[in-house]
Amino acid sequence: MVDWSPIAKVYEPLKAGSIDGTDVEPHDRAVWRAMGARYKPNKGVRGDPLLTLFVARLNPQTTEDKVYQVFSKYGDIQQLRLVRDIVTGFSKGYAFIEYKEERSVVRARRDANKLVVDQHEVFVDFEQERSLKGWVPRRLGGGQGGKKESGQLRFGGRDRPFRKPINLGMGPGQKRGAGGRDWDDRDRHRGSDWGSRGRRDDRDRRRERDDRRHDEGIRTGDDPKH
């Protein structure tokens, strides 16, 4: 648990599909697709990935000029690309911004996330396609986004970090039970409760048996209690 981090350092589809990164089986078909994908970052993308921000959830009506106007206040911009549909030319709602200095990237990521631009709350993070090893985009079942309605939730990112998993290791006051199970004080308490419950059940069964014998004795004129 020492090297645990809420933010993924390496992208693994199986872990990204788990709320705490400990799943051993994919919970949706998209994870299977991502695990089998052989994705390579787009070699046509220019610029330094360590100086590039990913800006998502933009209003479809937001223009390059408006994005430039909002994000230029954090530092000098080297280049900006608003991603558009290749057929319609409409904005897809996300952009990539490369700054000239690292401090500008850090400042923009810190201060611009959840900023409202044209009535839309934007999401801002470092670019991951070229900087996060093993990255698989959402269209192939990966990514770190997704909506609850679709059942495709992804974790390990800024927007939805991993939850810290429960520590199942041996600790003080624990001992190994049969079959390799760990038992602690709560288990022992629960076990004693099961034992007392079992004894109560035995008493109840004996009482019911005696009552049946008593009823049968009354009907035959031979009461076993007398």
Rank of each mutant, 00 (worst) to 15 (best):
D28G: 08
R29N: 14
R29Y: 09
A30C: 11
V31L: 02
W32A: 07
A34L: 02
G36D: 06
A37F: 15
A37Q: 08
N42Y: 08
K43P: 11
G44S: 08
G47H: 06
D48G: 02
P49I: 11
P49L: 07
L50M: 12
L50I: 09
L51K: 14
T52Q: 07
T52V: 04
T52G: 01
R57A: 00
L58F: 06
N59S: 11
P60H: 05
P60D: 08
P60I: 06
E64D: 08
K66F: 11
V67S: 01
Y68L: 08
Y68F: 14
V70S: 06
G75L: 03
D76G: 09
D76Y: 02
Q79E: 10
L82A: 03
R84I: 11
D85C: 09
V87D: 05
T88M: 00
S91L: 02
K92I: 00
G93C: 02
Y94A: 00
A95V: 01
E98G: 03
Y99K: 09
K100A: 09
E101G: 04
E102V: 06
R103L: 12
A108Q: 07
R109K: 08
R109S: 13
R110G: 00
K114Y: 11
L115T: 13
L115R: 01
L115E: 11
V116C: 07
D118K: 01
D118P: 06
H120S: 05
V122H: 07
F126N: 12
F126L: 12
F126T: 10
E127Y: 08
Q128T: 08
E129T: 03
R130E: 10
S131L: 10
S131W: 12
S131G: 02
